[in-house]
Write a protein that binds this DNA or RNA. Structure first.
Length: 203
DNA sequence: CATGGGATTGACT
DNA sequence: GTCAATCCCATGC
């Protein structure tokens, strides 16, 4: 099994970490998926929960880099984030979508869906598929039980599509959403360019 | 203490 | 395209 990313990986600007996490692997028990979509959140901008400062809700955002921040969204879903930067900064990367790798039957059972693209193609879906609940809040992404591993050896860095974040009402102009180009497993709305034939870069 | 609003999803028109 | 489900917690009286 691949080694977990070290805490130092997360102790960097959150936008850099969000970009670099695309292509990495999240593992929880027997289930694992390739990260194909992330978003960055930072306490300097109002879409971030930590914008209001240190509260009971946001305490985990100010934990050590490499900590999992799991919170309930819309009273229904658990969303998984990786805490970044230093402990004085409330910053995290939201994991928005995965391509299922291991434990796919387990994911199907948890999700009640069959199609591979419906298992992890959204931030609430992937936590359900992996079996990650609120009880994983404040646990270490380096030691587990939820781990993030480096990009599998031999796989090239994915080409990225960068765009504005999804589902927020403030700071909607920041281009802090990163999607693996061409992946069928990213969440909707699909980033501009997905599914289109993309010309190779001009030499 | 009451209220309102989500970093969403799935079902339905 | 619209909309309800459901609950933690930040905010305000």
């Amino acid at each position: 099994m691949a080694a977990a990313l070290p805490a130092g990986f997360y102790a960097r600007p959150v936008v850099d970490v969000a970009r670099d996490l695309v292509g990495c692997v999240v593992r929880h028990g027997a289930a694992a998926g390739l990260i194909v979509e992330t978003e960055a959140y930072h306490d300097s901008e109002p879409a971030c929960h930590a914008f209001a400062g240190l509260t009971p809700r946001t305490a985990t955002l100010f934990a050590a880099p490499g900590t999992a921040y799991v919170y309930r969204s819309y009273g229904v879903h658990a969303l998984l984030n990786a805490v970044c930067e230093d402990a004085d900064t409330g910053a995290a990367v939201l994991l928005r979508a995965l391509e299922p790798l291991d434990g796919v039957e387990e994911m199907r059972a948890r999700r009640g869906r069959e199609r591979r693209e419906e298992l992890c193609s959204g931030p609430g879906k992937l936590t359900q598929a992996l079996g990650v609940g609120l009880d994983r809040n404040a646990t270490s992404l380096v030691r587990g039980p939820v781990r993030i591993e480096a990009r599998p050896a031999g796989t090239p860095a994915p080409r990225l599509i960068v765009g504005p974040r999804i589902g927020i009402t403030r700071a909607m102009d920041l281009p802090w959403r990163f999607c693996a180009a061409g992946s069928r497993c990213v969440s909707r709305p699909w980033p501009r360019g997905l599914g289109e034939t993309v010309s190779p870069p001009v030499a």
